[in-house]
């Protein structure tokens, strides 16, 4: 009835149209952003492209971080075989001492001193053993000793190595002072110990 009354009078129609227009304006005002999205302008597309570029750059940065970690891990992984597995038949410190003594004996160098073995925990399930040593012998023998140490597996790393002439008391002889390091792992899989990078 009300609608019929409104529709029948000119003034009613004008009021109705004005109200409708006002309502439309309010809706347009409230939903301005959504309405704009319905017809994207060049400015909006350009703004979006800038955003895309920014995200792309950020993605490259983050990818580089992950790649750097993967490279670092892969380098470490390559050295995995040079680590001593603690589950082996021999204790790690005994292995280290025995290798040095055996090699000295076989190459004919004299061990002047061999310190106690020091243990440093690097991380859980991974530690290092370090020993100071001083050997003396003919140059040829010292070089054989050095070469022999290079071939030892698991690897004995030189932390310090000081090679010099033995002086007047041993002409033609050389003295080798240094510190050797052995990395020991308590688990077979290095990935388990340090954790492989997630991809």
């Amino acid at each position: 009835m009300v609608i019929k009354k409104i529709a029948s009078s000119k003034q009613g129609m004008i009021v109705f149209l004005a109200c409708s227009a006002l309502l439309l304006c309010i809706v347009a005002w409230v939903s301005y952003d959504e309405l704009l999205n319905l017809w994207p302008t060049e400015k909006m597309i350009d703004a979006l492209k800038v955003k895309r570029k920014k995200v792309q750059k950020e993605l490259v940065n983050e990818s580089q971080k992950n790649n750097a970690f993967e490279v670092e891990f892969s380098k470490l992984e390559k050295q995995d075989e040079s680590f001593y597995l603690v589950d082996s038949e021999m204790r790690s410190d005994d292995f280290m001492r025995k290798k040095i003594e055996d090699l000295a004996r076989s190459t004919g160098v004299v061990i002047k001193s061999l310190s106690d073995i020091r243990k440093n925990q690097i991380i859980k399930e991974l530690y290092s053993l370090e020993v100071n040593l001083s050997v003396e012998g003919q140059t040829k023998n010292i070089l054989s000793f050095l070469a022999g140490l290079e071939r030892v597996s698991p690897k004995l790393y030189w932390v310090q190595c000081d090679l010099r002439s033995a002086g007047a008391r041993n002409k033609g002889g050389m003295t080798l002072n240094g510190a050797l390091k052995l990395i020991c792992k308590e688990s077979q899989d290095l990935k388990q110990i340090v954790g492989a990078p997630e991809k």
């Binding site: 970690f69 670092e72 991380i123 030189w158 990395i183």
Partner: peptide
């Protein structure tokens, strides 16, 4: 998320790498 997850592992790997002496071929 990967970076966040790998952060701890990355630190561990860095710690292990730092503990490894430089590998010179003395001979």
């Amino acid at each position: 998320i990967l970076v966040k997850r790998n952060t701890l592992r990355s630190k561990t790997v860095a710690k292990v790498s730092a503990a490894l002496p430089a590998q010179f071929d003395n001979i």
